[in-house]
Design a protein around this nucleic acid. Structure first.
Lengths: 353, 353
DNA sequence: TCATCCGGCGCATACGTATGCAATGCGTCT
DNA sequence: AGACGCATTGCATACGTATGCGCCGGATGA
């Protein structure tokens, strides 16, 4: 009775394409009923539902989310655009995002911007897949593409980044306050010769941390501060520290734009025979896991990453729910985690005596 | 003349859904021509093509890859299933995979298996999105789901993992030889009391490395070897080292199943006042970037990661090209990178004298 | 000059699912 | 008893693109 054309498939391997129609036929129902049974539509009798499920199981049916997305106009896919994942702060964030998104029933399509690549280069790719939203962790100062996306109703959320002009949501920490915290701490510890190793110059995080640090130092009457350019890598931190420590007038207090930079600086100090924190205090930013390792015991500024990620996803959910919701900018407070890479401020030492 | 029902959209925000039909209308051609113009089908005149392109640009048209995938039966999406990305060896791999996949014109849908989650749990999700292939980096000994996938013609490639029984492709390094290398090296350095800190017990990498290490030691007549269970984390390595160094008969040679474990062990030794490598030699596996940092200078076994990833993608391309291609298993040789965390073998020391 | 061929394009249909609407059957209320 | 409401299901169509087939016109060959 099966009058299908013989030998349609050339290859013996089962090119199995079980559709809801097949399931419907086996279960003796209409395709629409199968669809309803699988989209937890309550309007289907329990008895029918189980019949559909067993039929689906015997056939090995899996709903095709692409087809579903085509009609529902929702892919349940969120694009995550990052810079190099390699930098050790990113993977933790990425991991958490993926886990949480899955708990929300969404998947993550991950895009990494190459070394010289801008966000705008990978944006078209993401749009082609009709992702529901965009989470951007990549460092960019401005992006016409992002603004376009937001204007078209596609939720865009910047994580730990700020894009000038674009009317998009953003979640970050108070980088300026973090820089100020570090300055106060170092001054309180009685330091006199200050230095800063920068992260990527075109990133908002670097700019803000630098601004807070320099501003607070100036407020305390410190005029001259050494400034070394750099990027967010271990090697960059190492080399910048080499330049600083090789000077005739090396600093005794060093703030690094991120922990990974600070670790490089610490290793350089170690290799140069500079004692930490006796000769040099070093403070980082981010509080990555390695900062707590006893080889470094890096004093650093901690951001509430978990809360920031939760906030990001909350905004995401809201925007997905109501595309007309206005963009939100949330900043979280930071705290200074004192470990052993920086001298303790005087007042703390007094208290200890 | 436009007789569309008025006020279809409630919200003022442009719910722009520009389709190829819209572009076709503006360009004065048929929809199929637009499709051809965008799928580099040569059967379209240059003049027409540019007309289509300009029309698309003015409308802000972006091809809908979901719809395309529905008919072409190809999504150009590859699923990458990982364990925790947090472990510092994974991000580098992930980053490289994503970059290379994009160079191939494919995107990565990343799934992370939770702590207690098996690959089989996330597999259905991946299948629903009709991914073209599956790259699995997660640690699993056996998986019925993977075998099913492979049987259904979906290319599955295991990276640095081996799944018993499943007839799937795999790329890895020679973990057994690596373990042997370490054993020979430590014996050559004149050590007598050996220990091993294991990674996750149910991972093939751990089993193989352990097997090579213990086997070579036995071949050299070493009978008793301390064995500490553990998992692939810094903390686990730290605690295992604590247990080992707290013994009345602590080891003087330690092989850790991975670098991240070794770093924990090194920090524990540092905190315990055990000198490395004078009192204790430590060797890891993987050669993650941190192994080269001067705070650790970890001697370790290096795998040719780049070549392994390239091989993986080559297999992928082949299997996508011809689904009937048989599964391949490739193993790459490893090398021992001698740094300063382990005593040098005697013969080298002799040569130095 | 006519037959042939081919590049270029339109027409129609398929991909797999969701969903509004209608139809059916059953229970309940007046 | 008749009307009405509700639950359940089928029917038909839409989502946006790719592609086989056919048509047309111009170029080429004899």
């Amino acid at each position: 009775m099966d009058s299908k054309p013989p030998r349609q498939n050339v290859r013996p391997v089962s090119v199995r394409k079980v559709t809801s129609v097949d399931v419907a036929r086996l279960a003796g129902v209409n395709q629409s009923t199968v669809s309803r049974a699988f989209s937890d539509d309550r309007a289907v009798a329990d008895e029918t539902r189980t019949r559909v499920y067993t039929a689906a199981r015997t056939l090995g049916y899996t709903p095709n989310l692409l087809a579903r997305s085509l009609v529902t106009q929702r892919t349940n896919i969120v694009a995550i655009v990052m810079a190099h994942i390699s930098s050790p702060y990113q993977p933790y964030i990425l991991d958490k995002f993926i886990q949480e998104l899955r708990a929300m029933g969404r998947q993550a399509l991950v895009f990494t911007a190459g070394p010289e690549q801008e966000v705008d280069d990978v944006l078209p790719l993401a749009l082609q897949y009709r992702v529901d939203a965009l989470i951007v962790t990549s460092a960019t100062l401005s992006s016409a593409g992002l603004a376009d996306c937001a204007r078209d109703g596609l939720p865009v959320i910047l994580f730990n980044r700020l894009v000038a002009g674009a009317n998009v949501s953003a979640v970050g920490c108070d980088n300026v306050a973090g820089g100020e915290l570090v300055a106060d701490y170092l001054i309180g510890a009685g330091h006199h010769r200050f230095a800063y190793i920068a992260g990527n110059a075109n990133s908002s995080t670097n700019r803000e941390r630098e601004q807070g640090y320099f501003g607070a130092l100036q407020a305390h009457g410190v005029a001259a501060v050494l400034h070394e350019p750099g990027e967010y890598t271990y090697e960059s931190g190492y080399r910048a520290a080499q330049r600083l420590l090789g000077r005739p007038d090396p600093p005794d207090a060093l703030f690094c734009a991120s922990d990974i930079i600070a670790l490089g600086a610490l290793d350089c100090a170690r290799d140069c025979g500079v004692r930490v924190p006796d000769d040099l205090s070093v403070i980082g930013f981010d509080d990555i896991p390695m900062a707590g390792w006893s080889a470094y015991a890096l004093s650093t500024v901690r951001q509430p990453v978990s809360r920031m990620i939760d906030a990001t996803l909350a905004i995401l959910a809201r925007q997905l729910d109501d595309p007309t919701a206005p963009p939100v900018i949330e900043r979280f407070p930071v705290t200074l985690v004192a470990r052993r890479s920086a001298r303790l401020p005087q007042r703390v030492e007094h208290r200890r005596l």
